[in-house]
Design a protein around this nucleic acid. Structure first.
Lengths: 338, 338
DNA sequence: ATTCGTCCGTGAATCGATTCAACCGTGACG
DNA sequence: CGTCACGGTTGAATCGATTCACGGACGAAT
């Protein structure tokens, strides 16, 4: 008789052998305890405890299909916006006893693909992701293979995929209009790469607002591409300072982390905000209101975004497309506060 | 011949049939392409493309054992401290092409257990976690079942488990000493539940510092237990304000989110910081320096913490116990800035 | 006494990929 | 011409849990 090696995990048949029953019975104890007589059930449970048996998920999954698990892929785990979304998802998933696994793509399409594959291999029911590219073919393929897919924070370009988004064009336009209303005639837009959909949309929103105000976007808008984090903001701010003209400048940041970097740099350099430079952020993260110079920002229903995405995943019906509306929160950094 | 159902995912044997080869050959194409002649390899690859075949991870895992995947369980995904740690882990894991799945226990031991189980069932190589309780039995059991375990942000109480931590007793003591040096003789400590190890250690540090200064901790320290987030800070601040004495108060917060909530509330109520209330945080998160009143905080090597934890997971050798030293960063909120 | 129904429990088939011993040319070499 | 080596391929065993058709035992009903 092969001695079960010290290192190997106990399997269901080890339990069965120890308890003197068949594997089928052990499985029944695990999944349908009522169908097993009290006496045998106790024997089996004792054996399980003795061997510290934990069922092998891969085997179960192979047999059964998939588990009540969802995956989320965000662009940057260190951005509070995304973690708030994740929190919203968790809150919804918890209601149905699903579990959420989170991964961060770092805006890298390859990492994103790897995680999609990983999640699929792990048999998740569905995936919510903030895509790092415009390409949805992989997602459609995934969807066809039976994995539910919800696009996060961007509308779905195809009817097959569900999506939950906030109107980025409108949000960016609001922010731009606000700065124009403060008397600025030129805007600097610290944006991320436009391959990211939100960045493209926010750019479009700014352009639209300028055009609507009768300004030529080519003249009135300068877009600077920076990394989507505080360092990116610092980098953008340095670039601005390098060619200081003395005239007031209006800076629109693609998110609050970038704005944080900008404010940090301007403060170090002793630049007056909003006098010399007006700053607007995007996302209205927790700390936006509490900064040295409270930050004007575009608020998004972050938690609801995640909640709704998870809801679509769990309900899994038709591919809905939900769009929320953002809201401008004016504070001191833009010079518009009372 | 059974028609492969429209809904079912293609399996390796579907591919084999279509390509007119055996399953073994398909597997070879997938895993050891050199051993297959160019001609058959192309046929197989064509079949794979046509059927949009994606190997079933459960089956592979069942056969092979585990994957190059690690799990991380943190207390709160919306706390930048933990996401920075996760980022550190990812950076290390990327070097060895491992992937990281993150989960948030919300300080709930039951959720924690569920995730541990989930990760184990998914065959992760190892788990790094910030435990929500003192109890390490489950972790030891996990470890014995062959899953590598690293305790995050707290030293291991047992030699079998690896750990990466920051000296919380020292950090809290530094913070407390600093406040005492500013002339305060009583401290309010907004702490989380002491069942969480960091909270217990930081409390111990404060007590030690008071004792070392010749003060009676029972007299000089008031501990208020609050949730470990900004709302917790708000709650704590309200409690303080309710019994305002007019005398300056020193508040030590168990983390920067709590401090953020305190500052927010004090600002709304028009309380002078640091004049009326001095505030110290813990973690020195990104935005701590940029707040209305820049926050004095205890800096931890967050990224290194995660990096080192992941390193231990990947290397998987003996159960090391690494302890980093924190550092006090003095800013205005405590009244100690220059 | 026979039949039927329940209740428990069994054991083999199944999921899909991996692995490895065995096999089959084909060409080289003695 | 026989033997050997070797690259390429096969097919069956394997991983561990689930499921289901089947059977034994026992009590109740006819």
């Amino acid at each position: 008789m092969p001695q079960p090696s010290r290192r190997r995990r106990a399997s269901i048949s080890d339990v069965a052998r120890l308890a003197g029953v068949s594997v089928g019975t052990v499985s029944n104890v695990l999944n349908r305890p009522q169908r097993v007589s009290a006496a045998t059930r106790e024997r089996v449970e004792a054996a399980i405890a003795e061997l510290r048996f934990v069922p092998n998920g891969s085997a179960r999954q192979l047999r059964v299909g998939s588990m009540t698990t969802a995956g989320a892929i965000v662009l940057d785990l260190t951005n509070p916006f995304f973690t708030d979304v994740a929190r919203g998802m968790e809150d919804r998933l918890a209601q149905d006893d699903w579990t959420l696994m989170v991964a961060s793509s770092e805006e890298d399409p390859e990492r994103e693909t790897r995680f999609l594959r990983l999640f699929e291999e792990h048999g998740v029911q569905g995936v919510a992701l903030v895509p790092s590219t415009e390409d949805v073919d992989r997602l459609l393929a995934l969807h066809e293979r039976g994995v539910r897919v919800v696009l996060l924070d961007r509308p779905s370009p195809v009817p097959e995929l569900a999506s939950v988004a906030v109107d980025d064009v409108a949000g960016a336009a609001m922010a731009a209009r606000h700065l124009l209303a403060q008397g600025h005639e030129r805007l600097v837009f610290l944006n991320g790469p436009r391959t990211i959909h939100q960045c493209a949309d926010r750019h479009a929103g700014v352009v639209a607002a300028l055009a609507a105000a009768g300004l030529d976007p080519h003249e009135a808008l300068e877009e600077v591409t920076v990394p989507l984090n505080a360092d990116g903001g610092e980098q953008g701010a340095r670039e601005l300072l390098a060619r200081r003209t003395g005239r007031p400048v209006a800076v629109l940041c693609v998110n609050d982390l970038v704005a944080l970097g900008v404010l940090r740099t301007l403060r170090r350099e002793g630049v007056d905000v909003p006098g010399e430079v007006a700053v607007v952020g995007y996302d209205d993260v927790t700390f936006a209101a509490e900064l040295t110079i409270p930050l004007t920002s575009v608020r998004q229903p972050t938690h609801d975004l995640g909640w709704t995405a998870a809801d679509l995943l769990v309900r899994g019906g038709a591919a809905e497309s939900v769009v929320f509306q953002p809201e401008l929160v004016v504070r001191e950094s833009s010079g518009g506060a009372a």
